[in-house]
Amino acid sequence: MLKFILKRILQMIPILFVVTIVVFLFVHMIPGNPARIVAGADADQATVEMIEKKLGLDKPIVEQYFVYIGNLAKGDLGTSLKTNEPVLQEMKSRFMPTFWLTVWSMLFAVIVGVGIGILSAMKRNSFWDYLGMFGAVVGISIPSFWLGLLLMQWFSVKLGWFPTTGLDSWQGYVLPSITLGVGVAAIIARFTRSALIDVLKEDYIRTGRAKGFSESKIMIRQALKNAMVPVVTMTGLQFGFLLGGSVVIETVFGFPGLGSWLIDAVATRDYPVIQAEILLFSLEFLLINLLVDVIYGFLNPQIRYDD
């Protein structure tokens, strides 16, 4: 198992290298002179040159890349054009809120999604199944920002249970986490249902029935773990969806995390911040994929021994 994890980490190195190149080239892909865009059309040449220098655009491109890598190694992610503060510093303060937001919403999504999926699979083609699956399609179709505003309007404005915006206490997590989790819960519910229905067709389920287990025991003791193998994989991949969704949700709730920061940075063309965020998100993806593989190995004994 350890060998397997190590191998996967080694496999990540070339990918990381490609990621740094893409992130580095980001500024160079902007049509026109990025410094000019940042400075604005009326800015004088001196300002433009100063910004060019700040972005490191004044040197040959290969040298720029090595400077960039060198800085990364030192933990220097550049300086925000807007605040003139080191990007890393702000990133540190914004990382944990987003981290917890994704964790809570994933927890919500897994509990609700797997629950509905199991119920639907057990009561297949019943009213509850149809209701659950229709709910899931609605969950996939509902615009998260709209759902966020509705929840905010109801629970914060009308009932006053939660703060409308900001993150002064744990209550600030509740509505954003639910809003963010609904879409993923819907996807997990659909997936869990179909995975379970596939598993229930397997021969070993018939064996379980032949042993005299009741349908609910079959579901929980025989089918669930098998169905969880694909569900875990899919759920892990949904973390990406959550990261994407967090951008929207954080903006809705004025949540001080990485997502709202990214939108601000895009709006103000704060390129070093955008670059740093793309890098961070890519890293998170790679890590999540690694984690999914590891958990997959634990759930499926056949995988573990193949490596």
Partner: peptide, 24 residues
Amino acid sequence: MRKIRGNQISMIFQEPMTSLNPVY
């Protein structure tokens, strides 16, 4: 039937490769 199945009447199947649950 649940009291009988696997207890008083039990059954083995054609496909030994797939009749056992792979994850347990």
